[in-house]
Amino acid sequence: MKASEAWSGDELLTHARAGESSAFAALVRRYQRTVYSIALRMLNDRHRAEDLAQEVFLQLYRALDSIDSDTHLVFWLRKVAVNRAIDRMRQESRHDSEPLTDAVTVVDESIADDPLLHRRMTELIAELSPAARAVVVLRYQEDLDPVDIAGTLDMSINTVKSHLKRSLMQLRARVQGTAIVEDIR
């Protein structure tokens, strides 16, 4: 194991800021899962998610001096990943986006009790509006509470709560609808 892997987030930050590329690479390895997962759930496409996640780390590299601590870093990464994803979705919505077929590959089946349901769930999440999707991803993937989500997305807490409530209702209705259709078949 490399020495940098044993460092705390704050130590890694200090070394990365001093220009040690091995420390920055260790930072990437430490947070790639968070950033990539947000990008993937938002864009629902592995290639675009990889590209966006790379851009987020590239932006981090340029902004290293403005990051105070490990906690700030995680907040920053989530915020930049979500905002970049929303921007990209808005840009791409001008061109007709294809049906989210890549969602099929997104579910990690080893951890899924019901892969089909989870697949359907990720497809339905991908149909939410960009802002609602961001709220759902931060709540159920990143496990943030509404206050932190509001801070990350620059939204009021009431807006976050209303997005959550509406998205849950919508998703539940769609999942139940799917189940009914499957029962009829």
């Binding site: 990539y36 579910v107 990690d108 951890i111 009790d113 991803v137 993937q141």
Partner: peptide, 14 residues
């Protein structure tokens, strides 16, 4: 349902 959402949104490695 919320647990199902959490399960469906498990973080994924690149």
């Amino acid at each position: 349902f919320e647990q199902q959402l959490r399960d469906a949104l498990q973080p994924v490695d690149p």
